[in-house]
């Protein structure tokens, strides 16, 4: 079995080696690089889809948040308006009630005054009658004689009138 020299140049060996490298280039490209790159691209697409999905969800959430914010603000306004209305109505009602009460009180007071005046007049009348009666009795006893009651009454009334005018 012969062996080559340490340095031996053979054109066919060079060509074979060159072709080997070319073949290996295609092997590496088709078998190693392309599947790996395909896998990487697939994964990137997957990650991208997840990111876009997350972004979409975020946008939706933001949209809903603004929606709810406006809704809540509207609700607040509405509540304020209702409260204001209620307060106004209550105020109005209390005014009416107070007014009514005032009127009633005034009426009662007036009635009382009228009653009091009437009572006073009645009392005056009563007192007057008593005085008349009393004085007629007194004069009957003093004079011990029968006098015309009607005349007396007239006389005493005149007298009392005078007193009333003085007092």
């Amino acid at each position: 079995m012969q062996s080559l020299d340490i340095i031996s140049i053979n054109i066919w060996q060079i060509v074979v080696s060159l072709l080997n490298l070319v073949i290996l280039f295609f092997i590496v490209k088709k078998v190693l690089f392309e599947p790996v790159k395909k896998m990487i691209a697939e994964r990137e697409a997957m990650a991208q889809s997840i990111i876009t999905e997350a972004n979409e969800t975020l946008d939706q959430a933001k949209e809903q948040k603004t929606l709810y914010d406006t809704k809540i603000a509207a609700a607040h306004d509405e509540a304020d308006a209702i409260i204001k209305k209620a307060v106004a109505r209550a105020d109005h009602r209390s005014d009416v009630i107070i007014e009514n009460a005032q009127e009633k009180a005034d009426g009662i007071l007036r009635q009382a005054k009228i009653d009091a005046e009437l009572e006073q007049k009645k009392a005056e009348e009563g007192i007057r009658r008593e005085i008349v009666d009393l004085s007629s009795v007194l004069t009957k006893k003093m004079l011990k004689r029968e006098i015309n009651e009607a005349d007396h009454r007239e006389m005493i009334d005149e007298f009392l009138q005078d007193i009333g005018e003085i007092s």
């Binding site: 079995m1 062996s3 340490i6 066919w12 060996q13 074979v16």
Partner: peptide, 25 residues
């Protein structure tokens, strides 16, 4: 020495020795 030669193929221009280097590569 260089690579051992298993066999030699007859080719134009120069023969192609199938050496260890060829087989191993």
């Amino acid at each position: 020495t260089g690579a051992h030669v298993y066999t030699v193929l007859n080719m134009p221009v120069s023969d192609l020795p199938i050496s260890e280097a060829q087989v191993n590569s």
